[in-house]
Amino acid sequence: MTPTIVATVLIGGILTGCVYALMALGLSVIFGVIRVVNFAHGEMMAVAMYAAVFLFAAFGLDPLHALPLVAAGLFAFGYALQRRLVEPFVRRPEHEQFILLLAVGVILTNGALILFGPEARGIMTDYAFDSYAVGDIIIDKTKTIAAIAAIIAAAGLLGFFRFARTGKAIRACADNLIGAEVIGLDVKRLYTLTFAVGTACVGVAGTLLAMIIEVTPALGPELTLLAFVIVIVGGLGSMPGAIFGGVLIGVSEALAGLLIVPSMKSMLSFALLIVILVLRPEGLLGRRPS
């Protein structure tokens, strides 16, 4: 095993990790603000992936062009879901929220199974096999494009929360719910918007991930777990944590695939999750609750 191979794998892991990070960012935003744990997160991701695959297969739409469409679709889906289903659950016991979203996830996974069948489906763009060579290191072109798009989307999201009025209002709700209500913020609307923004994130991340890996119905629950591993490792509710966790998991998966058996790569992630939960439940970058 030469350093070049390690570097190649490492870079691949970082690039995939950027897409993971965007997915986890969506989960973190939803939890950080609404305090609802979206247990259907990966399933929504799979839906976005199927949408991208469908748009490519039916209309020959490049994933990058399909991106706004899928994001808008997922935004609308998240908006409706929060309005119709999740909203009344915000103040219900934790396990009821959990089961509600679990049910949504089961419906999405099996809906995908019925519509698309169990076969793996992917997108084969004409640049799928292109790569850049930096010295001896080979960098996959598709992954690079996906990672750049993910970084742009993540930056846009962070900017939205930092500079936009609505974004600031949403952060106000997260910081101090009663305070936000007192100064007259429409918390219900902001919650709905937050959920929709979170799922739109998933829409973008899903489309990008569809460029890199193939999608099967069973991928949904796996991605949900992956997203949870990432946000808990980074710190549930912390946006920088989600990004850091995403890249970390991307790299650790890539290295595990190289150094151990590829099929054991997620075992490492679960072991990491257990260790973090026990030793530092607020995550690596999360704030210790005071």
């Binding site: 049910a103 089961v106 419906i107 996974t109």
Partner: peptide
């Protein structure tokens, strides 16, 4: 169709 049973469980 595989999955229809699980779908209904979910619903």
């Amino acid at each position: 169709t595989a999955g229809i049973k699980q779908l209904v469980y979910g619903v």
